[in-house]
């Protein structure tokens, strides 16, 4: 099973936090702004992501054709001035379908990433701060999730619950929360021994406030990076699963388009190239941005 960027980052981060005392993140904002000035790949990533989001939001204004309008007289036409990315086997405009598919793929990138971020953060904070049994239960659960190959686990969930977009969100959330929980737990373990936590306790601050008002803000920079790397991960997983036929067959995401176009791969390569490139560009943009943010936030990466 391949290791994603995110897995590597998660593993390294957990280790680092436990190894060395994490430096307080000072001037993170300034560091990020500075990073965008020097790291043009990250800046390009940010711009591309914004463009893709804008395209998805304003899809009706950009496209000339209804993505689902069939035109059997105009099947499998190569790219032209009329149809920029050609038409598919049912005469639908591929460009429109890619733009509209972007709505779905972005949603698939964001929604499960938000869910797994929130879930992983809360569970990680609980495990790290409460310790003992709570920690043991949550971390063994995380181990179980991490022990399965992610794709297999997600496919099992999809098979069990049925192929729908909602179940896709659930499956992707399940495979992603554990890594986040580990990172947050490691950081919480280190943060809760800090004097400022003791100082807060000595002022009568409740445990709930200590966790969410004092410890959580210190984890935010890393969470932002994890989130940025979660999104392309989710898009990739969804594409893989749609390609393998366990996605929602009615949700025209990029992955499904590639899957449906594969029968015509030699005859009409644009059917897989267009959505394939869309996936590639989006995932790379997020990865460049995530890398840049990580370098800006993570003082240990700087050389």
């Amino acid at each position: 099973m391949k290791k994603t960027q995110r897995d590597l980052y998660t593993a390294r981060l957990s280790k680092q936090i436990l190894d060395a005392d994490l430096q307080p993140d000072v001037g993170v904002r300034a560091s990020i702004i500075n990073m965008f000035r020097t790291n043009h790949a990250a800046l390009a990533g940010l711009i591309v992501i914004l463009l893709i989001i804008l395209a998805a939001v304003f899809a009706p204004l950009i496209t000339r054709y209804d993505p689902n309008a069939l035109n059997l007289a105009n099947m499998r036409k190569p790219p032209s001035a009329e149809h920029w990315f050609g038409t598919d086997d049912m005469g639908r405009d591929v460009f429109s379908r890619v733009i509209y598919g972007g709505r779905l793929s972005l949603m698939i990138g964001f929604v499960p990433s938000v869910i797994s971020l929130v879930l992983g953060t809360v569970l990680g904070l609980m495990a790290g701060y409460l310790g003992r049994h709570v920690d043991a239960v949550i971390m063994r659960l995380a181990d179980v999730v991490l022990a399965f190959p992610s794709l297999l686990l997600a496919m099992v969930v999809m098979y069990t619950l049925g192929s729908s977009i909602l179940n896709m969100f659930i499956a992707l959330s399940i495979i992603n929360w554990a890594g986040t929980a580990r990172v947050v737990r490691a950081q919480t373990l280190s943060l809760k021994e800090k004097e400022f936590v003791e100082a807060a306790r000595s002022m009568g601050v409740s445990r709930f406030s200590i966790v969410f008002k004092h410890i959580l803000p210190n984890c935010l920079p890393n969470l932002i990076v994890l989130f940025t790397l979660d999104i392309p991960g989710a898009i990739m997983w969804e594409s893989s699963m749609s390609f393998l036929g366990v996605g929602d067959p009615n949700a025209a995401s990029w992955g499904l388009m590639v899957s449906q176009g594969k029968s015509y791969a030699y005859m009409c390569p644009w059917l897989i190239l267009a959505p394939g490139l869309a996936i590639l560009v989006t995932v790379m943009a997020f990865n460049f941005l995530g890398d840049g943010l990580r370098d800006a936030i993570d003082p240990y990466m700087k050389t």
């Binding site: 993140d25 004097e195 400022f196 100082a199 807060a200 002022m203 004092h214």
Partner: peptide
């Protein structure tokens, strides 16, 4: 009852 600790560097939360 309030307390003051030894390390003013680490007794304050760096992100607040």
């Amino acid at each position: 009852i309030s307390m003051i600790f030894q390390e003013p560097m680490t007794s304050l939360n760096p992100v607040i």
